[in-house]
Design a protein around this nucleic acid. Structure first.
Lengths: 204, 204
DNA sequence: GTCTATAGCGGGATAGAC
DNA sequence: GTCTATCCCGCTATAGAC
């Protein structure tokens, strides 16, 4: 493969990524993608064999990146509260880059939960890592900085507070008559709000 | 229309509802629905003209019911904390009946935000009603029972904590190796957890 | 590596017999 | 009101020329 080849291949992949993850056009056809990339539709098949393969590729790549960034923060040695702040920053950063990634994940997993299970199933050694994070959560409860609950509930709370506004974005936009700028402003504010809501010490 | 007619019509609608909302088969074809109902596929067109019409009918009905139940609690005269408890109960009751309703809403709104806007846009007089609820939230902050934030953030927090676990269900099931019973148990526990997380007085 | 042409299928929808 | 037969379209995918 020469330089020119891989350039076209990359162009198609990037375009697909943009349509799927940034613009939320999850049902974009091969023709849509080819048009947006300005190439002949057959090239999509030439490089990726089928729409499914391209689709999975984009999805898995984005998901792997998000997971790795989150995991690396989750397993860092930072103090608990700082770790939570870092997780919020990473999550929001990724979700602002790919506003539809979260919706995309939810959709895919609901459509065919078996297909991507290896992406979520605890990795070798991962279970141990999750336990370490859960132990940290428990330690915070013992210190009294967060309310008493099973660590898994704290975990669910955390991700619910971060992720839901992104998947429910169009609903909130209608409900409260928000434009793009207003929504983004809310999202920025939420970084503090989430901290405020997770910790018992209600000061920021 | 005789009795027999409307019986078939109802059967098709109920089956579609079951596939779409209970089993999460949101991409079920007209053939799938007809097969599941045990009727000829043409009857679906006979009664509902097109798949789209049937689809919208099911979606709008379910959504209207959920919205009405939530609104009636939200605007009741119950004390704030009791009102929140009632909202949690109503929401969970509906979501356990139709586990995919929330995912369905999110998906539809992301797919085509304009199509269903009248279902979310503030109704005539609705804006006023929302303002009343927001005033109640503000009053609670003044009393010091919930942390200080814009009411809209409290609102988002509340619905995030309730709704996200339902849309992310397949993810959590993989991630923590949960079976159906284990997930349902977690959801039941969350009623208390959500209360615990919303209010400053961290006792239940 | 890129194009044109075409095959093939799955799905929605309708006509018309019963 | 219910069925069979058929049409039509959009989309994926591939063969084969350049």
């Amino acid at each position: 493969m020469g330089v020119k080849d891989s350039k076209t291949e990359q162009l198609i992949k990037d375009t697909a990524k943009r349509l799927f993850l940034t613009e939320g056009r999850m049902l974009a056809t091969t023709q849509d993608i080819a048009d947006a990339a300005g190439v002949n539709r057959t090239l999509l098949h030439y490089y990726f064999r089928s729409r499914d393969v391209l689709f999975d590729l984009v999805f898995k790549e984005a998901l792997r990146e998000l997971r790795e960034r989150i995991q690396s923060v989750m397993l860092s040695t930072a103090p608990f509260r700082e770790k939570i702040e870092n997780l919020i920053n990473v999550f929001f950063e990724e979700l602002i880059k790919s506003p539809y990634l979260e919706t995309f994940i939810v959709l895919q997993m609901n459509q065919d939960p078996g297909k991507y299970e290896e992406l979520f199933r605890t990795l070798p050694g991962g279970e141990q890592k999750m336990k370490i994070f859960f132990k940290e959560i428990q330690a915070e409860m013992d210190k009294g900085t967060i309310p008493e609950m099973k660590p898994i509930h704290f975990f669910m709370n955390f991700f619910s507070l971060m992720a839901y506004p992104f998947v429910a974005r169009p609903i909130y936009e209608k409900m409260f008559d928000l434009n793009d700028a207003a929504f983004k402003k809310l999202v920025r504010e939420r970084k503090k709000v989430i901290l405020l809501s997770l910790f018992k010490n209600h000061e920021v």
